[in-house]
Amino acid sequence: MNTTATQPLRAARSQAATIATNELSLSVRSLLAWSLPVAAMLSMTLSIQKSMSQRGSLFEAKLAMLPREMRAAFGIAQTNLADPVHYLATNFTFYSLIGALFAALIGAAIATREANQRVSEMLYTHPIERSTALAAKSAAGLAVVVGFDAILLATSALAYTAAGVSVGRATAFVSVFAGAALVHATVFSLSLLAGVSATRPRSASSLALGATFALYGCGVLARVSDKLSWLEHLSPFSYADAAAIATRGHLAPKSIALLAATFALLALAQVRFARRDIDA
């Protein structure tokens, strides 16, 4: 008869690696399908920075004619097209939202994959703890989500280099992507929690996408209206705003809250998952 490994810790690590590897292999196609087109779009946008900056004053004047609320809503309140990091930040709101939607889908998919594909019973009657499995799946999911931002970072750097643009402020440039990664990790964790809590696993993706749009909306409303400025506390997007990072040159201290939120949401997901019935 087979027995488990003699070292329980080693066995758990080996099982976690098995689960994480499996999860990565199942998610890598989604990562490439989402990140490569987005990276291509962002690269094209960045590759014209030089020409945009040459006509920058005219373009900035046009942007300045837009209502303040609109500029605030789309993150173009502080525009300096001549600065590559500011130029990136001006365009980054859209890409950060796409990354958040991807993170939401990955979080929900990872939480509900076994239930949706009816393999939960088979998996959790193998000698693996639910907590180990979820931790391994979470780590793989976070790697995929952060991988999305890493791919954008790498292709953006290449696009600027290819276009002959010197980024100059490297810390600020990387911080824009690091901030986005923190936002995406938070959205991922929230979606994972939604996924393990959903009574109908198939609805978890819709729920996660809806929640992401709602959080994004909170950030936009907080910027548009002074009366609703308190909503910024609810939106992870407000904690790592790309334009503010570009101006400041680094992440704001408050962005550490995103890291704390990520860990808290992952811990809650563990508690919720440990208590739920597995029936598929």
Binding site: M1, T4, P8
Partner: peptide
């Protein structure tokens, strides 16, 4: 956790 893992290592479902 260890007991559960040991038991499940001897179960097929």
């Amino acid at each position: 956790a260890d007991e559960r893992r040991d038991a499940l290592a001897r179960v097929g479902y």
